[in-house]
C-alpha cells in the first residue's frame, strides 16, 4: 500500500473515528462536576483507616494494590524482554569514553549527591506528601546515571555490575508479591495490613504500605538501570580483548 493510499484511507477512517469519539465524549458530565461515589468514599475513609495523609499513595498500595502488582510485573516482564532481545553486537564501534571537562565532573558529583538524597526522600515520604515508590525510584535511577555522566561507563560499571542489579530488580518485584502473602497469612486478605498503623503525618504510618513502597522503589530504580546496561553492554570490551585501537579504557 503506497503512502498516499494509506494517508487517504487514514483521512476517512480518522474522521469517522474522531466523530465517534467526540460523540462519546459529549455524553460525559460537565467538566468539574464530579459526582460518582467511589472518590468521595475513598477520601472519607482512607486517612482514618490507614493513617496515611496521601490518599493517592494509599490507593496505589492498598485499595488498588492488585493493579499495582500487575503493573510491577508488566515492568519486570518488559525488562526481561529487552534483555532477551538485545545481544552483543559485533559491528558497533566503541566510542571514546573519557570525561575531560572539569565543570561537568564537579557539578555532576554535586548532582549525584543531591539527586540521591532527593530520590530517597521522595520514596520515604510517599505516604505523607506527594511521592512514592514509582516517582522516587526513577529519581534514584537518575542519580546513578549521573555517575555515568561524571565518570564514564567504566566507573559506572564498577559501581553497579550487571548481575547484582538484575537480582535486585527481581528481589523488588518478588518482595511485593511475598508481602502480599504475608498479609494473607496475618490478615486474611492478600495484600492486607499486618503492621500497626501508627500516626498519620509521620514516617511511621500506614502499616505495611511503606514496605510495599520501598519494594516498588527498589524495583523501578533497578529496572531502569538494567535497561541502560542492556542497551550499552555492547560497548564494554573485556580486558583480555582490549587493544589500543578499540578506544580508551
Amino acid at each position: 500500500m503506497t503512502p498516499r493510499a494509506r494517508m487517504v484511507g487514514f483521512l476517512f477512517a480518522g474522521a469517522g473515528f474522531a466523530a465517534l469519539m467526540f460523540w462519546g465524549l459529549v455524553g460525559l458530565p460537565d467538566f468539574g462536576h464530579y459526582h460518582w461515589p467511589y472518590g468521595n468514599a475513598l477520601n472519607a475513609i482512607a486517612t482514618p483507616e490507614r493513617h496515611t495523609t496521601n490518599v493517592v499513595g494509599a490507593t496505589v498500595f492498598d485499595y488498588r494494590g492488585l493493579d499495582t502488582l500487575g503493573e510491577e510485573f508488566i515492568l519486570f516482564a518488559s525488562v526481561v524482554g529487552v534483555a532477551l532481545l538485545l545481544r552483543k553486537d559485533d559491528q558497533a564501534r566503541v566510542p571514546p569514553d573519557v570525561v575531560r571537562s572539569d565543570p561537568i565532573r564537579a557539578l555532576g558529583v554535586l548532582g549525584v549527591l543531591l539527586l540521591f538524597v532527593l530520590g530517597l526522600w521522595v520514596v520515604a515520604f510517599g505516604i505523607v506528601t506527594p511521592g512514592g515508590g514509582f516517582q522516587g525510584g526513577v529519581a534514584l535511577a537518575g542519580a546513578f546515571l549521573l555517575v555515568y555522566v561524571v565518570g564514564g561507563y567504566r566507573q559506572y560499571h564498577e559501581l553497579l555490575p550487571h548481575s547484582p542489579l538484575e537480582m535486585t530488580e527481581a528481589a523488588g518485584a518478588g518482595a511485593f508479591a511475598v508481602l502480599g502473602f504475608v498479609g494473607l497469612a496475618y490478615a486474611g486478605a492478600y495484600l492486607g495490613n499486618f503492621l500497626g498503623i501508627g500516626n498519620a503525618g509521620s514516617l511511621y504510618s500506614g502499616g505495611s504500605i511503606p514496605l510495599l513502597n520501598w519494594a516498588t522503589g527498589i524495583e523501578v530504580c533497578a529496572a531502569l538501570l538494567v535497561l541502560f546496561s542492556e542497551f550499552l553492554k555492547v560497548y564494554m570490551v573485556p580486558a583480555a580483548e582490549w587493544t589500543p585501537e578499540k578506544g580508551p579504557r
Partner: peptide
Amino acid sequence: DVALSMLVVGSIAYPLVLMVAIMR
C-alpha cells in the same frame, strides 16, 4: 503525584531510553 511522576519520567527515563536506542 501524577505531575511528579511525569516530571521524573520525562526528564530522566524517556531521554535515557531514547538516547541509547538512537545511539545504537
